[in-house]
Amino acid sequence: MTAQTLIEVEHLSRYFGPIAAVNAINFELRRGEVLGFLGPNGAGKSTSMKMITGNLAPSAGRIRICGHDLLDQPKLAKAEIGYLPEQPPLYRDFTVDEYLQFCARINRIAKGHIKTAMDNAKQRCGLTEVGSRLIGNLSKGFQQRVGIAQAIIHTPAIVVLDEPTVGLDPIQIREIRKLIRDLGQEHGVILSTHILPEVQMTCDRVQIIHRGKLVFSDDVSNLNERMQSSSLLLTLRNPPSAAALSSIQGVSQVEVLGPNQFRLLHATTRSPAEAVAEQSVKNSWGLCELTPERKTLEQIFVEITSTEQHTEAAA
């Protein structure tokens, strides 16, 4: 048997009044996989997370966690999930140790194992040193880590993290991304975010959700392909005419951005970068900058959602 399926979601929908926050989405999560949930603000990411973790009842659809239906056997299903919501649910008056001990107990860890579970979680999240400090006195980054420690303390099969890197400094973000990758080795992880590079760095598979619908679901490598640049940013000290640039093989169009700066558009499949560099040396244009431009999340969204609309209109 290949990787075990941890989550099966079928036709999951959630309405708030007449508004469909989540509209009939289907997906699966396997063990050893990090699944990125990507979408702009208000796309329905958090609503989906809340439903998967049993914090919000779905309007329609079915969620199975490790084979247990979330509505019929909530206790069995919830025992397999660790959840870090957008705002970590911390007791600020408690010390880190007291808090984690409470979390271990409500997740029904046997008395003898609580100590090991706590040490393990603290060590993984880099909290060993702050065990006896009050949570309220810790920095935002440490509080976020306590939130993650809470989610993994009972070594659940599935860890759901809702925007775990919001409000952290770059070093902490790197550490947490590394932690997520580590978790992905043995658990199944669902990561919700609106930061594109985060998904590229940490996830194996990505799903893009837009206005409550899944508009894209594929491996990250395929997303990268989609994101491949179709333009080069070029700065030259002694620039030739735009016409000379557009005559280079592979360049489909030239935009003049300034006296020395140009944007060269090309087909995604073949980059003319090499040819441009060659020509530049040959004609001493004085090459200062040659950068492939990456697409931003917005562009991807526009691309994906606009093709969606086209197909819808055609249908």
Binding site: T53, N55, P74, K75, L76, K78, A79, P89, I106, R108
Partner: peptide, 9 residues
Amino acid sequence: TLLFSAPLS
């Protein structure tokens, strides 16, 4: 959420 996500009724 902490209590709702834990296996508690």
